[in-house]
Design a protein around this nucleic acid. Structure first.
Length: 1029
RNA sequence: GCCGAAAUGGCGGAAUUGGUAGACGCGCGCGACUCAAACUCGCGUUCCUUUGGAGUGUGGGUUCGAUUCCCACUUUCGGUACCA
């Protein structure tokens, strides 16, 4: 009987779906295990073979855990809001909800493109997902709760005293009782002090304005990339070389009022939490750097009125520094050009220069400013600050290497101790005072803290780094010019997007102040609009909605016309207010989705506490490391917040995480040989030179040995050859090879091109001439010599690139499933290489895994005419050894997520058992279980043929027994000076001395020693013998 | 620029704690089966100037012994705060 994988796979996929085989149980007596994949974004391009890599890995692990007796939750869903759907909507005029649905469920879009749909594609691969718990972020029933979490954040503040988020009501009552002076909150800087009496006397609007400075989500002015021509804000990766990717319009930095999340409140806990989760050290390090804790001092520098002519009085510049020990080395200050303070302090004489510089800076992206260390630029404001100790004037500059969003947006420049300050000072001719003892700073700054001894610094002289820092802070505090401070690089997260396809904010504006819509009136659904673009006056797309106002009396969305023009005044207030026009960012819905999977049984979509408590957090999370500082940080933030507010009992969402590497495409190239400029060929009047394809080798030959290359043309194209050969250099100047991407479907396992197929795909190459490997030529139009049997071939060149449509290297998993089966696809993806590494896909290699599955099938079908045959006879010693060796290795590998090596192990086991002619049930039944997480369909089929009536997923993972692997002797490698020369079989129970004696007595040892006496013999029993000398 | 990761035959990769470099698979070569092809099976396959020598991105170091540990560098990939 043949291995009919298509039938087998369809049969079992149907069985699993119909029987709910993989539905997680609740309640359950079993221990739980929660395996989750990072949320897929359902793009219109569909799945390529790179996408399922992580899903297969997590599926293998989930199935393994089931065999190990766990109640496994392994859900899947879609992060279905996002920019690509919106851009597709803008391009094609379709509602993103429609295209998103098609992308998930399949269908035909209005361009006539047939879309298979994510779900069908995933189903074909045979995942053990519990689809009954599917989640879509763009589903109002889901985003209702995203909106609710937002309102909860709005109604919360962070109390430093209890070190957690609390209900805003506790803050309000504290204010009413005692004002804000004894409140230790994470809040905006520079909040004015007020007493209880003052608070109680404030108007509601004033109170709301103050509370907004404490809330965990708040409105603030933030810098964005504004593209005036497109009337919208752009993401950094929508900007290429300072202009918009679409249309190439200029982009400037602009301030906008945006919703922000006070994630900075959680900086320390996000940092500490890393210690108790099992993630790769590298991604934890990425988050540590992102949070960027640094300990130092906040220092105030008074701005000198008498020196600058500015009108500012009693103004300070506050800086954060990690090196207060070098405070006597300050020779200038640098401010971020976009700070408001710059305008205030700049002297009239410097105004023109400063304004010009600010304008130039607005055109540069933040990333550009950080990355570019070569160009040094800045401008002098004309103003001076006063050194807190020496009272000397310090010139105040602006420079784009200082970013407004980091720290206070100002630095005290110590050129002798910081290279960027040093370069800046050098460039503008500013003094570089040396405050280090015995250090030469004539060439570069000295940043080594460990070897610092301070000099020229008054009371700090002679002190080392640590002591000097301590003393400097002490002295600063004494004169009221600063204090010790811990700073975090982590900035509050901007939460507004000027887009359509995202969650609407449950927010309306009364009297200009934001108000939340209560949970019972949610979800606030996205309004219909006719175009998904910003409005003409630059408002976000929701500004196009006519029905987008909130009636607080009926709690409904109503027409904008009803908003009273005098709504700001109490007298004309009809209770109808405008709604927020921004939407939430992509990370909103994905910051809590792992909780929603825990239950889908309630009518209102809430999650019962029992389910939250039972499932706890995700035990294993698999996804890409590119989410390191986005999704993975924001989810941790929301989890800690929901923990603080008592909704969940875990404060880390993902206990263990594995980051799978990207699967790259192997692009194929044909080399078009043609004139750089067709006109140049006129110098060869009798030659028509078009559409020649040469091979990769010939292309190389052309570069290195042009003469030999042209010999190819000598016989067949004498005219051309004669023309060319007259002046090789001239020919070389006008003829060149151009690599052309060839779709990988036209390439076989030996890199040979299906020329006819290629010419059919690109008809303009029908008449082209392909010079083959042996120099003969072929044209697909048939005008030339047909390729006959034994004729040469055209081999493409190959290069590894990102898998993408435009590179024609995309491989669709559906095609692989049809041709080889899902089990082969699953195994091959695992076999490719270590899960965590990036690796190229090459369909050619898949035959190895496929024939392994055929061999496995045969192992169970050794009867006449390939009939299923398994005996109840006792297994041979060898077969038991093979089995138990495989159990051990398979289990170790799976626990270490080393899936590629376990596939090899199965191959070795199958080869060995085939050679042993093993037919014993005792061996073949456990073997099927071992393989079932990887190749579940074939395993189920074999399992049922073995007479089982339940799914193999209900079986128990075989138990390893060491007794089958006991060895009595070892083939020792005998090395001389570390080089292995020969092997010697010796009993394992020999002592060190006995081994040495046996080795030295061996005649081969004497041969390799060539008469020398060994200086030393290293014997490691059970491992190796090394003879030195 | 900064942060993180990777580099081993023609290719994907293996070597779990410093102990036989190249498991397993692809490709390639030879052979069997076949009228023939495909499939399948068997054998071989790191390189070289082959009684031997070299070899895990480059250059150094530690060690009896280094793909593995240390130092310096090169290249490629990911992230860099509005792609997801």
């Amino acid at each position: 009987m043949q291995y009919h994988f298509n039938d087998i796979e369809a049969k079992w996929q149907k069985y699993w779906a119909e029987n709910g085989t993989f539905h997680a149980q609740f309640p359950s007596d079993k221990p739980k295990y929660y395996v989750l994949d990072m949320f897929p974004y359902p793009s219109g391009a569909g799945l390529h073979v790179g996408h399922p890599l992580g899903y297969i890995a997590s599926d293998v692990y989930a199935r393994y855990k089931r065999l190990k007796g766990f109640n496994v939750l392994h859900p899947q869903g879609y992060d279905s809001f996002g920019l690509p759907a919106e851009q597709y909507a803008i391009q094609t005029g379709q509602h993103p909800a429609v295209t998103t649905k098609v992308n998930i469920e399949g269908g035909v879009d209005n361009q006539g493109n047939e879309i298979a749909g994510y779900r069908k594609q995933l189903d074909k691969i045979g995942f053990s997902f519990d689809w009954s718990r599917e989640v879509r972020t763009s589903d109002p029933a889901y985003y209702k709760w995203t909106q609710w979490i937002f309102t909860l954040l709005f109604d919360s503040w962070y109390n430093r005293d209890t070190d957690k988020a609390e209900d805003i009501e506790s803050l309000v009552s504290a204010f009413a009782k005692a004002g804000n002076q004894n409140i230790h909150a994470v809040c905006d800087d520079n909040i004015a002090a007020f007493t209880a009496d003052q608070w109680n006397a404030f108007s509601e609007k004033e109170q709301q304005a103050i509370l907004l400075q404490y809330r965990l989500t708040y409105l603030a002015e933030t810098e964005v990339n504004w593209c005036p021509a497109l009337g919208t804000v752009l993401a950094n990766d929508e900007i290429v070389n300072g202009v918009s990717e679409r249309g190439g319009h200029p982009v400037v930095r602009k301030k906008m009022t945006q919703w922000s999340m006070r994630i900075s409140a959680y900086a320390e806990r996000l940092l500490q939490g890393l210690e108790k989760i099992d993630w790769s050290e590298s991604i934890k390090e990425t988050q540590r750097n992102w949070i960027g804790k640094s300990v130092g001092a906040q220092v105030k520098f008074k701005i000198k009125n008498d020196v600058s002519s500015s009108a500012v009085e009693n103004a300070y510049i506050e800086v954060f520094t990690t090196r207060p020990d070098t405070i006597f080395g300050v020779s200038f200050m640098t401010l971020a050009p976009e700070l408001d303070l710059v305008q205030e302090i700049t002297t009239p004489e410097q105004k023109a220069e400063v304004d010009a510089y600010i304008e130039a800076t607005a055109k540069r992206s933040e990333r550009e400013r950080m990355a570019d260390v070569k160009t040094i630029s800045g401008a002098f404001t004309g103003a001076y600050a006063e050194h807190p100790f020496t009272k000397e004037p310090i010139p105040i500059w602006i420079g784009d290497y200082v970013l407004a969003g980091y720290g206070t947006g100002a630095v005290m420049a110590v050129p002798c101790g910081d290279q960027r300050d040093y370069d800046f000072a050098n460039h503008f001719g500013i003094a570089i005072p040396n405050v280090f003892e015995g250090v030469d700073i004539s060439e570069e700054a000295f940043a080594d803290k460990d070897n610092t001894v301070i000099a020229n610094s008054d009371f700090l002289n002679g002190l080392k780094y640590k002591k000097a820092v301590k003393l400097a802070i002490y002295e600063l505090e004494k004169i009221g010019a600063g204090s010790g401070k811990t700073n975090y690089r982590l900035r509050d997260a901007v939460f507004s997007r000027q887009r359509y396809w995202g969650e609407p904010f449950p927010v309306y504006y009364k009297d200009g102040m934001p108000q939340m819509i209560a949970l019972e009136h949610l979800p606030l659904e996205l309004p219909e609009i006719e175009k998904y673009l910003p409005t003409e006056d630059g408002a976000p797309p929701l500004g196009r909605a006519d029905v987008w106002a909130w009636d607080t009396k009926t709690n409904n969305v109503v027409s904008n016309d009803l908003v009273s023009s005098s709504a700001v005044e109490k007298s004309g207030d009809n209770g109808i207010y405008p709604l927020e026009l921004n939407t939430m960012p992509g990370w909103a819905g994905s910051s809590w989705y792992f909780l929603k999977y825990m239950d889908n049984t309630t009518a209102d979509g809430s999650i019962p506490k029992e389910a939250l408590d039972y499932w706890g957090n995700v035990d294993l999370y698999i996804g890409g490391s590119e989410h390191g500082t986005g999704h993975l940080l924001y989810s941790r933030f929301w989890t800690k917040f929901l923990f603080d507010r008592g909704f969940i009992t875990i404060d880390e969402p993902f206990q263990k995480m594995i980051n799978q590497g990207m699967i790259l495409g192997t692009s194929a190239f044909a080399y078009k040989f043609q004139a750089i400029d067709p006109d140049m060929l006129l110098s060869y009047p009798e030659v028509e030179m078009k559409n020649f394809f040469i091979t990769e080798n010939q292309s190389k030959l052309y570069e290195t040995d042009t003469l030999t290359f042209f010999k190819i043309f000598e016989e067949k194209y004498p005219l051309f050859y004669n023309e060319i050969i007259e002046d090789i250099e001239k020919a070389k100047g006008c003829l060149k090879t151009f690599p052309v991407h060839v779709p990988v479907q036209f390439i076989n396992a030996s890199n040979e091109l299906d020329i006819e197929g290629f010419a059919k795909w690109r008809p303009e190459f029908k008449e082209a001439t392909f010079i083959l490997e042996d120099g003969t030529s072929f044209s697909p139009s048939g005008g030339d010599v047909r390729r006959t049997e034994g004729a040469s071939v055209y081999k493409v060149g190959r290069e590894v690139e990102k898998m993408s449509k435009s590179k024609y290297n995309v491989v669709n998993p559906d095609d692989i499933c049809n041709q080889y089966g899902a089990d082969t696809l699953r195994m091959y993806e695992m076999f490719l290489g270590p899960l965590e590494q990036a690796k190229p896909w090459n369909t050619a290699g898949i035959t190895g895994v496929h024939s392994f599955l055929k061999k496995l099938w045969k192992l169970y079908h050794s009867g006449t005419d390939g009939a299923f045959h398994v005996s109840d006879d006792a297994a041979s010693k060898d077969s038991l050894k093979t089995l138990h060796k495989t159990i051990k290795k398979a289990e170790d590998d799976i626990e270490n997520f080393s899936f590629n090596t376990s596939v090899s192990t199965f191959m070795i086991a199958t080869n060995e058992l085939t050679a042993q002619k093993c037919t014993s049930r005792e061996v073949l039944a456990p073997l099927a279980i071992l393989i079932s997480p990887y190749a579940p369909h074939i395993a189920e089929e074999l399992w049922s043929k073995l007479g089982q009536t339940t799914s193999i997923s209900e079986a128990t993972f075989p138990v390893f027994e060491a007794k089958h692997l006991v060895e009595s002797s070892k083939e020792y490698p005998i090395s001389f000076n570390g080089k292995m020369r020969f092997k010697l079989e010796l009993p394992l129970d020999l002592s060190k001395d006995e081994i040495e004696a046996a080795v030295m007595a061996n005649e081969k040892t004497q041969h390799y020693l060539e008469g020398r006496t060994p200086k030393k013999v290293i014997v490691v029993p059970g491992k190796i013998v090394n003879i030195v000398g």
